[in-house]
Design a protein around this nucleic acid. Structure first.
Lengths: 325, 325
DNA sequence: CACCGAGCCTAAGGATCACTGATGGTCAAC
DNA sequence: GTTGACCATCAGTGATCCTTAGGCTCGGTG
């Protein structure tokens, strides 16, 4: 019998066009995705991909399978929703750890969504940085679910008893003071930003490490005028003309006057947003909540993109695979 | 993520009203079904059954889940069908072993079905008794798929590398010469049949053993006037007034004049019909063929039932669990 | 009432599955 | 030519899933 996980993977692979990218999204290794797709081909007796050394191309059969698969998967979603609704489920308490940008710009939208009210979840929210919320998840901790982000492969580690679900990306954008007179649709090279003053993360934090490495790789050695881990503060300082800053799109939902947002092809970086969940808390309700979250986040970033010169990174950001053992 | 096998099991459990019966149908042990349902409850966070020591009762939530699940499963079927159709699949050769009654009364219906032609399977048929066709399946043998039956838990054994799929039941009926003057709708007890002459299987065959045991359990010690393993012969002899016979419904598709078919509550027995399949041959096409087979068989026996005083055995026939190691 | 059988649950053990991590191959870009 | 992406494959290991065995509860029977 076909495996639903394989179908989900198939969808992601055809969407992103690559095993590796899909693996990143789904929290697998590329090897796992390769094996899953091989298994799916074996189970269905259908050749799904034309493989070459550097890429895979979905066959016609794969595309029709994708159409059906997405239907099957949404049917399963509604199955879960219907079942959890028809049970006289006592309200489930969910203790959620969440990082500031999401709590500010996405969580309110969720709470206003009619789908949210149907879930019957009683929420307890704890806003903090990922490194802290992960602590809260450790066995016997005060949290059930944490929404965290990770920049590149850096830093974060969590017990392997936690389940990881990809929620979305949050791309960094370059923010300049409007007073510098650079147009929003200007084509900038990283090198042109070298002389300018920058507002950076506090050195030593894992995000700072990744960003410094990215800058170094484009030969950009910024002159630092401020250290700030708070994007609102960074934005306001940028608006005041202090310097350039690298700010994720989510934080740009609140965009003060006096800043210019640029897309610099050399500086492409994203925060990978995902959930970490205690295994025993993986109920249908929580699963539906995660879906809702992903949908809402997609909507949020789409709104931001629509508001500026839309920049869609062409290669998927790779995330750390689920650690085992 | 939910498991499709669990959903299929759920359907079977609610249909039959019991873990044990579903297990028989699906080729599992009751324990496996119990664990699957527990897993499904864990995965969905929904209580599916009210359990008592001797029975399970599906909850409201289980019933709504059943509705959705059957939709999901048929969607998966159509997914398989669509995918295997859209591939430029070269005609697959399938070497099928099949026992006489099925080959006579069901296979022709299949070949006439439009669904069959879409499958693109090139069939090679070998008609023989189960014990022989199973031999043909052994590695390197001349068969890919065998349609076999089994009466009770008796006799048959097959390599554990073969996959077993339940297809349907074929109930035995009591056939009497019309010349005995017994009405078709008469209520008979087994004891009333004790004095009559019987046409029986050859002693020593596994079917004969099961039938003798059944007869013994109703204190029926028949006077044997003929030994025959060929139901057509038995039927014709019964029609000629020689004696009573126990004949499966399938063979009654060809019902000679001069016989009366009875439902005797004490004598309830069925041939369990299922497929045995080489693992590496389990393609989507073969899976769809198996579905078609089950549907056609259901149609066949339904037709027979409609033609006589419908006798639906109320408890599911139990079949041997899949032998491992 | 004691016994038995049907049907459920759980624990333990073993086969299989599925993922990671390492290795190797191919191809495109520089 | 070298490097970097990307996919396939393999070995190893932890998780999963099914069978077996045993235990429990309930209804039917001598």
């Amino acid at each position: 019998m076909v495996n639903l996980l394989h179908l989900r993977t198939l969808l992601e692979v055809t969407r992103l066009g690559s095993f590796a990218a899909a693996a990143g999204r789904l929290g697998y290794t590329a090897s796992a995705v390769s094996q899953q797709m091989a298994a799916l081909e074996r189970d269905t007796g259908v050749e799904l991909f034309h493989r070459s050394a550097r890429s895979v191309v979905p066959t016609e059969a794969a595309l029709t399978m994708v159409r059906h698969a997405s239907k099957v998967l949404t049917d399963v979603e509604t199955l879960l929703a219907a079942a959890s609704r028809s049970t006289d489920s006592p309200i489930q308490e969910l203790r959620l750890g969440i990082f500031p940008s999401l709590a500010t710009y996405v969580l309110p939208d969720i709470l206003r969504n009619p789908r949210w009210k149907k879930l019957g979840i009683e929420l307890r929210v704890w806003v903090a940085e990922p490194s802290q919320t992960i602590q809260g998840l450790r066995t016997g901790g005060e949290l059930d679910l944490a929404l965290v982000y990770q920049v590149g492969q850096s830093g974060l580690a969590w017990p392997h008893t936690l389940e990881r679900h990809w929620i979305g990306d949050d791309n960094f954008r370059v923010v300049l003071p409007a007073s510098w007179g650079i147009r929003e649709d200007a084509e900038m090279q990283a090198s042109q930003l070298s002389d300018m003053p920058w507002i950076m993360h506090h050195p030593g934090t894992s995000d700072a490490v990744v960003i410094e490495r990215l800058f170094a790789s484009c030969n950009l050695h910024p002159r630092v005028v401020a250290y700030s881990d708070d994007f609102h503060a960074s934005l306001e300082m940028a608006a005041a003309g202090l310097g350039a800053a690298l700010v994720p799109e989510l934080a740009l939902r609140h965009r003060p006057p006096g800043v210019v947002v640029l897309d610099v092809p050399d500086i492409r970086l994203a925060r990978n947003v995902f959930t970490l969940l205690l295994n025993e808390k993986r109920t249908a309700q929580v699963q539906l909540f995660t879906e809702l979250l992903a949908d809402t986040l997609r909507g949020s970033t789409a709104a931001v993109l629509a508001g500026s010169a839309a920049a869609t990174p062409k290669s998927a950001q790779k995330s750390t695979p689920k650690p085992r053992s």
